[in-house]
């Protein structure tokens, strides 16, 4: 393993998630995300019927992939992958062509309705660079979200990823996502059932 660089990652323990949306809210206020669009949100899925129902939460944020298709297809090099793995968008360079939105397998990008450029979660790199954790990690009341350096074997997240069965969303897309989940339910990543919750 290459230890020269950090490889930042997020691990979400869905067994601990209570679906309180504190992460979504913290993200909104930290990053000044306009109304109607979200950098991170909690998808909520209900399975089965009374008396044996199950309810599952899936906090969704950018996977900051190792092999990000959004960076590959950006025509103006506005998508940039940092050595520590964070993928961000240069707001001064983006022309708002939405090709990244069309190609992202996770649908985490949106057009900022005021600035008309593409935006997404970048694990609060302004906070990370200042030695803090991303806003969602800090806000989570149950410590379901872990953030850290996977290249450091002593970090909390490295140990947790090693000790648990982890999963990523859509591993088949070849983007090598770095947002890991413990206890990911197959139904909550299935997307076909659209529209009922509408736009």
């Amino acid at each position: 393993m290459n230890n020269q660089h950090k490889r930042l990652a997020v691990l979400i323990d869905l067994r601990k998630c209570i679906g309180c949306n504190a992460c979504s809210l913290a993200c909104k206020s930290e990053n000044d995300v306009p109304l109607g669009v979200w950098r991170s949100w909690v998808k909520r899925v209900e399975k089965g019927h009374y008396p044996h129902p199950g309810e599952f939460f899936l906090p969704i944020l950018c996977n900051n992939c190792e092999n990000p298709i959004c960076v590959t297809v950006c025509p103006v090099n506005a998508g940039i992958k940092r050595p520590d793995g964070i993928v961000y968008i240069d707001p001064h360079r983006c022309i708002g062509c939405r090709y990244c939105m069309a190609s992202c397998p996770y649908g985490v990008r949106y057009i900022n309705p005021r600035k008309k450029i593409a935006e997404k979660c970048y694990w609060c790199h302004h906070r990370v660079d200042a030695g803090l954790e991303p806003a969602c990690v800090e806000a989570c009341p149950t410590d379901a979200i872990l953030f850290g350096d996977l290249n450091d074997p002593e970090s909390k997240i490295s140990k947790a990823v090693a000790e648990n069965a982890v999963q990523v969303i859509k591993p088949e897309s070849g983007t090598e996502p770095y947002t890991f989940y413990i206890g990911l339910d197959i139904e909550s990543v299935e997307a076909k059932q659209a529209e009922e919750n509408g736009k």
Partner: peptide, 22 residues
């Protein structure tokens, strides 16, 4: 257009869809 194989009844209670790209 629902998923083709389904173990149990599933309903998405909340999700976010961003605007279409093209």
């Amino acid at each position: 257009t629902e998923r083709l194989r389904r173990a149990v009844d599933t309903q998405v209670l909340y999700n976010i869809f961003h605007q279409e790209a093209f």
